[in-house]
Design a protein around this nucleic acid. Structure first.
Length: 117
DNA sequence: TTTCTTACA
DNA sequence: TGTAAGTA
């Protein structure tokens, strides 16, 4: 199917779809006119990309992780060499959580000042 | 009308 | 990421 159609059904912008291809996450074939032609496989891959994005991965780590995800569920192939990548991701999430907690403390501080005045 | 590439904000 | 330009 054409990029516009895929964009509509997937909710992913045409811009992003082209970017995903540029980054090697998607490899749609081309029509005679040079239009990208997405098949069922690309659609499935896109769903995985969305799943991995929800996990907070950037495109590069998704690219490494992609071959180890099956279907739309969190089912992984025996890619043991990637458990390290998983730990790294969790570490990043923890870091962000800490930063958010810090922001929360600052906000709470503002509120206390207002209440205090 | 839709898509393509390249490039700027 | 969105958008603009000039095509096919």
């Amino acid at each position: 199917m054409k990029i516009g159609e895929l964009s509509k059904i997937s909710g992913v912008s045409v811009r992003m779809l082209r970017y995903y291809e540029e980054q090697g996450l998607l490899q749609p074939s081309r029509t005679a006119a040079g239009y990208r032609d997405f098949n069922q496989q690309e659609i499935r891959t896109l769903e995985r990309i969305k799943l991995l994005s929800a996990a907070g991965m950037n495109l590069n780590t998704i690219l490494e992780f992609l071959p180890c995800v099956r279907g739309n569920a969190l089912v992984f192939e025996p890619c043991d060499e990637l458990i390290e990548l998983l730990h790294a991701q969790i570490k990043q999430v923890d870091k962000k959580a800490a930063e958010l907690a810090a922001s929360r403390r600052v906000l709470m501080g503002f509120l206390d000042e207002i209440d205090g005045s």
